[in-house]
Deep mutational scan, measured.
Amino acid sequence: TTYKLILNGKTLKGETTTEAVDAETAERVFKEYAKKNGVDGEWTYDDATKTFTVTE
């Protein structure tokens, strides 16, 4: 399944996708990605669109 991440950081904005077996796995991948890019904020997930959003 393809999951999407929307980054709404103070200095970094953008989108990325990952293939994962479930939302929990995708969330771990995306949180590591955000951490590596210095983005830390509020996380939300929309199951209907398989989209995570992190907003600083």
Rank of each mutant, 00 (worst) to 15 (best):
I6Q: 05
E24P: 09
K13Q: 13
A26F: 01
V29C: 06
T25R: 06
L7H: 03
D40T: 12
Y3R: 00
Y3A: 01
K35I: 10
G38L: 07
E42A: 12
T49F: 05
T25F: 08
F52D: 00
E27A: 13
T1W: 11
T2L: 10
T51C: 05
T16L: 15
V54T: 03
V29L: 12
K13Y: 12
V54A: 03
F52T: 01
A48V: 13
T16W: 15
K35Y: 12
T1S: 10
G38N: 14
W43P: 01
T53P: 00
K10Q: 15
K13G: 06
F30Y: 01
T17P: 02
N8C: 07
E56S: 08
Y45E: 00
K36Y: 11
T18Q: 06
T55F: 08
D47A: 10
Y3S: 00
K50M: 09
T44F: 12
N8K: 12
G41S: 02
V29E: 09
W43K: 00
D22S: 09
L5A: 03
E19F: 13
W43N: 00
K35N: 12
E15R: 06
E56A: 08
E15C: 08
V39I: 12
R28H: 09
F52I: 01
T18A: 10
A23N: 07
A20I: 03
E42Q: 13
V39C: 05
G41E: 01
L5F: 06
T1Q: 13
G9I: 08
D22C: 05
F30W: 02
F30P: 00
V39W: 12
K4P: 01
K10D: 07
W43M: 04
A20K: 03
D47L: 08
Y3P: 00
G9N: 04
A48E: 13
I6M: 06
E24W: 08
T17R: 07
L5Q: 01
R28M: 12
T51A: 04
T1H: 15
K36I: 14
K4Q: 06
T16G: 04
E24T: 12
G38F: 07
Y3T: 00
A48F: 11
T44G: 06
N8A: 09
Y45G: 00
D47G: 11
E19C: 09
T25D: 09
T11M: 15
K35L: 11
Y45I: 01
N8V: 11
A20M: 03
K35P: 01
L7C: 06
E15N: 08
V21W: 13
E42F: 12
Y3M: 01
A26V: 02
I6C: 05
K50L: 09
K50N: 07
D40R: 11
Y33D: 02
A20S: 07
T25K: 06
E19Y: 11
F30M: 03
E42K: 12
W43S: 01
E15F: 13
E24K: 13
G14L: 11
K13D: 05
Y45K: 01
T16P: 02
T53D: 03
E15Y: 10
V54W: 03
W43D: 00
E19W: 15
E24L: 12
V21D: 14
A20E: 05
V21A: 13
G41L: 02
Y45M: 02
F52P: 00
D46L: 04
V21T: 13
K10G: 05
E27W: 14
A20R: 03
Y33R: 03
E24I: 15
K4S: 08
D47V: 11
A34I: 06
F30S: 00
L7P: 01
E32F: 05
F30K: 00
K31D: 03
R28Q: 09
N37H: 15
V54K: 01
T1D: 14
V39N: 03
T49K: 07
R28G: 07
L5K: 00
T16N: 05
A34K: 01
T1E: 15
F30A: 01
Y33M: 04
T44S: 15
T1F: 12
G9Q: 04
T51V: 08
F30H: 01
T55Y: 09
F30G: 00
Y33P: 00
T18L: 13
Y3L: 01
L5G: 01
I6H: 05
L7D: 02
E32D: 11
G38M: 06
R28A: 15
K31M: 09
D47T: 13
F30Q: 00
K10H: 15
Y33I: 06
Y3F: 11
V39A: 03
T25W: 08
K50T: 04
N37S: 09
A34N: 03
T51Q: 05
V54Q: 01
A23M: 10
G9F: 13
K36A: 11
N37C: 07
E32G: 05
E56V: 09
G41N: 01
E32H: 08
A34V: 09
L7W: 12
G14C: 08
W43H: 01
